[in-house]
Amino acid sequence: MVVPLHHIIAIASLLFSIGVLGVLFRRNAIIVFMSIEIMLNAVNLAFVAFSNYHGNVHGQVFVFFTMTLAAAEVAVGLAIIISLFRNLQTSDITEIHNLKN
């Protein structure tokens, strides 16, 4: 692999920032969720890059766990979105602030 390590990390950073952008800017809860997935994957990319660089598998194991976590999180998160949508007829997070009061 001839790509320098810091290029991969820079791409991961860029990806992460795009995720942040999405979380901050989008009002649709589903898109916000997807942005979070993008952020997770950015971190995964960094893990794999370091795993490759160091030549051991620990980074990959971490990615494995991240994926498990992401799966659990998505399942629960989407269930919450569905029940929110059912109750409030919206998935716009700027309109969901019942906890405020």
Binding site: V20, V23, L24, H97, L99, K100
Partner: peptide
């Protein structure tokens, strides 16, 4: 404490 908008919170974290 007051806004109730997730994105504000996220921005603060950021």
């Amino acid at each position: 404490l007051q806004s109730g908008l997730i994105q504000h919170y996220a921005a603060f974290i950021l």
